[in-house]
Simulated assay, not measured.
Amino acid sequence: MRLFILFLPLLWCIPMSSMAQGDIINEVKESIKAGSSKELSKYLNSSVDVTMNGDMATYSKTQAEFILRDFFKENPPSSFTIVHQGASKGGLPYAIGQYLSGNNTFRVWMRIKNEGSKYLIHEISFIRE
């Protein structure tokens, strides 16, 4: 019984952890759907790998916000949907989405890491299909 009481608080943390993963994906989805680099930057890690049409570079959070702002300005969103989400073998959450802008379709891929007490985007890609 004592063992159960010791582990009971840990059981409450498990759903909260997965809920936090889902929350960031939903928040990021809404930010991308709105084409808001400012809102999206709230969920970026301090260093972010950003890929735009095959060109990948590592940026600071502030630099990544400017890159995303320019992308959204050149490609205003018509719609954005998450088509798949899951976790890697190591437990890192990820999501794959489809971003539509006019006649252009982009595959969006993001990898999320737990940084301290919250989940943040570590890598994000926009690849024209």
Results as ranks from 00 to 15, higher is better:
1 M>A: 15
1 M>V: 05
3 L>E: 00
5 I>L: 10
6 L>N: 06
6 L>A: 11
7 F>I: 02
8 L>R: 05
8 L>E: 09
11 L>M: 14
12 W>D: 09
12 W>R: 13
12 W>E: 06
13 C>M: 13
14 I>M: 10
17 S>F: 11
17 S>R: 11
18 S>R: 10
20 A>N: 14
22 G>H: 13
24 I>V: 14
30 E>T: 00
32 I>G: 03
33 K>N: 12
34 A>I: 05
34 A>Y: 03
35 G>A: 03
36 S>K: 08
36 S>H: 07
36 S>Y: 12
37 S>G: 15
37 S>W: 04
42 K>A: 01
43 Y>R: 12
43 Y>S: 08
45 N>S: 14
45 N>M: 05
46 S>P: 00
46 S>K: 10
47 S>Y: 14
47 S>T: 15
48 V>K: 09
49 D>R: 09
49 D>K: 07
51 T>M: 07
53 N>H: 07
53 N>M: 02
55 D>V: 13
56 M>G: 09
56 M>R: 13
57 A>Y: 08
59 Y>V: 02
59 Y>H: 15
62 T>H: 13
63 Q>P: 07
63 Q>R: 15
64 A>Y: 06
64 A>C: 02
65 E>A: 09
67 I>G: 00
70 D>P: 06
72 F>D: 02
75 N>Q: 02
76 P>A: 06
76 P>W: 06
76 P>T: 10
77 P>V: 13
82 I>D: 09
83 V>D: 03
83 V>F: 01
83 V>P: 00
84 H>G: 14
85 Q>K: 15
85 Q>N: 13
89 K>T: 14
90 G>H: 06
90 G>Q: 14
91 G>A: 04
91 G>Y: 05
92 L>S: 11
93 P>R: 11
93 P>L: 10
95 A>G: 12
96 I>L: 10
97 G>A: 02
98 Q>S: 15
101 S>K: 13
101 S>R: 12
102 G>S: 06
102 G>R: 08
103 N>Y: 11
105 T>D: 01
105 T>R: 14
107 R>M: 05
108 V>S: 03
108 V>D: 03
108 V>W: 05
109 W>M: 03
111 R>G: 10
112 I>M: 01
113 K>A: 06
115 E>H: 11
116 G>H: 12
117 S>W: 06
118 K>R: 15
119 Y>K: 13
120 L>P: 00
121 I>Y: 04
127 I>V: 11
127 I>P: 00
128 R>F: 02
129 E>V: 06
